[in-house]
Amino acid sequence: MSPLRSGIAAVDGLSGLLARLTVVVAVTMTGVMVASLVLQIVFRYGLGQALTWSEELALFLFTWIVLLVGSLGVREGFHVRLTLLHDYLPGWLRLPLDLVLGLLVLGFGLVLLTSGSDYVTETLGQVSAAVGYPIEALHLAAPVSGGLVVVHALASLLNGSAFRTAVPPVEELSDG
């Protein structure tokens, strides 16, 4: 295999691995998030003592889930978009357009990664409002999400699958 091909395969493999990892982490976090909300009610009624950490924990996990799974959308192409114009374009125009859009997504990921890292370092020492956990645990979600966007965007650009999915599959359609 040529070095270029093996490089592409490596990025693709990394993207796939990170995607699987993201799924496992997100499913676990969702479980804990729902559980802490339910515990909150149980404690307030069943035990007559309100929990002070449940809401903040649930919200912390929520941010992580959104930013993690959001990055997954770059790989799986489930983010919503208008395909009106796209569908009418001739094939030879679609490819360069997708390339440009893919590069923009990649650039966005890079900015989120770097500005997110700045955000984490600039706010070191700050604590959360209720529990007082170190705020970098929360802020870290931004650069991590940015980094994942970069890997997935790069992989899909390299293997030519950027924006493959025109309309998201049925089971993923729903935004309320």
């Binding site: 909300l37 889930i65 989120l112 500005s115 955000y119 979600a141 931004a142 309320g176």
Partner: peptide, 26 residues
């Protein structure tokens, strides 16, 4: 400063009422 991007993306999800969205969908 571009740090606003990261800050706002975190802040946009730090709203307790929005937690109802994934829960109702699930």
């Amino acid at each position: 400063d571009l740090v606003v991007l990261a800050q706002r993306m975190i802040a946009g999800t730090q709203t307790f009422s929005l937690l109802a969205v994934p829960c109702f969908i699930l």
